[in-house]
Design a protein around this nucleic acid. Structure first.
Lengths: 241, 241
DNA sequence: CAGTGGTCTAGACCACTAC
DNA sequence: TAGTGGTCTAGACCACTGT
């Protein structure tokens, strides 16, 4: 049941309970789960608390509601895509590979026009330019170039870049990283990319440009990545409105 | 203020009111908006109703909360990406281009293995295979191949395909289309694709495979699209958990 | 008709932040 | 300490679905 003295909120405990019952196949896909009033009695909580739990599960795509009918268990996800925004290291780990990298460039430089616009800084402002080769299982996977505002992170150094850049950012700005806007395109390798990625000139490249944003809406980073198309596919979920 | 007799829910009216006040710059980015208790007084509704409105705006990325401090206006989005899952026609319209298409193939056939798995049907089940060239402003943009289960849509015909496939699906299954799992890769054009898309052999192609899913979690469609990389970039937002 | 989810109220106590 | 958002209660009325 639920523990009213637990530090965990009751709606969270109810979420976990229902998820487990789906896992154990006590509730199966397209089954109706007990009504909100019934759940509020069995858990001995108010109906609003049950609704908060169910709303979260609906937004996770685990349940769905039908007006006047009930709340139902959604079909199992056939292939679990990489959910959410991840670092290269997390991404490779989820794909069962080991990530490593080699730093090519770490410098302060004047922001190129497109970068200054996307970082929301002045046109001649200084930015860090960080370029790395990213390896998966010791083989080249991508060339990644990051740009961050010097103004926003005055004390950023090479040591920090070798660790987790994202946890540094979240600690520094005392804010969560909320989301990123992405642009994905296909290109072919130029000579420089071909050498660095160990592929033929004109081989297919998956090119991703990402603009990362804090929870207050401030952009803090632009990342340009050129992935070997033979080794990397981008997987995501998109939602209809 | 809010109209208590309106058929629109009060939380929705409050959402719209706050969005307008941000639009009019009455509330500016990083401003604290009035507290929940204050808003509940001025709108003359309960605090829970205000919270429902604010929660929706937070999940849209328009506001953000800080525990013990208040609720704040997020920075303006610099570039508005195409939000959510769209049809080719909607996508082109948002990019300021006119969509058209030519039907190449409409047939019933036995499902290829990968398709049957993704549509969650038996291995030898019948599926529709629909292949079209998609044009933007009269120039070839993509080759799109759709697969749908014959069992799920027994009466699908060429006429329906020429209209809006998604509204047909939503009407037929009495359910909303909820989301899609996507895989994006880069390839180079083979001879057939080069001819159909009017590009050189080995030119870059952005290849997107999409598995579309109803709100009860049932997959109903697999789409494979080969886009001309010189004309098409894929834009999206991703969220950190 | 009885049952369901959708909306809403008028309170309450808590943990956290800032002064 | 005063104010904030986070959680929770015990009710209520509504529109909608299925029988």
């Amino acid at each position: 049941m639920v523990d009213k003295k637990s530090p965990l909120p009751m709606y969270y405990q109810i979420e976990e309970d229902i998820k487990q019952r789906i896992e154990k196949e006590e509730f199966r896909p397209s089954d109706m789960i007990p009504s909100e009033r019934e759940l509020s009695e069995t858990f001995d909580v108010s109906r609003m608390t049950v609704r908060q739990a169910l709303n979260n599960l609906v937004s996770e795509g685990i349940l769905y509601r039908e007006k006047g009918r009930g709340t139902f268990v959604a079909e199992k996800k056939i292939e679990q895509p990489l959910q959410g925004m991840t670092s290269f290291t997390e991404d490779m780990k989820a794909r069962g590979m080991e990530a490593s990298s080699k730093l090519l460039v770490f410098e302060k430089t004047t922001a190129p026009f497109d970068i200054s616009r996307k970082l929301n800084v002045k046109e001649d402002a200084d930015v860090y330019k960080i370029q790395r080769i990213r390896y998966a299982d010791q083989k080249p996977m991508a060339i990644e170039t990051n740009y961050l505002s010097v103004d926003m992170f005055p004390d950023l150094d090479e040591q920090t870049v070798l660790g987790s850049l994202y946890s540094y950012v979240e600690k520094k700005k005392k804010q969560q990283i909320a989301k990123a806007s992405q642009m994905i395109e296909a290109t072919t390798a130029d000579e420089n990319q071909a050498v660095l990625l160990d592929i033929p000139v004109d081989a297919a490249i998956l090119y991703i440009e990402r603009n990362s944003i804090l929870s207050d809406g401030t952009p803090f980073e632009v990342v340009k990545s050129a992935y070997r198309a033979d080794r990397y596919k981008f997987i995501s979920d998109i939602y209809r409105t």
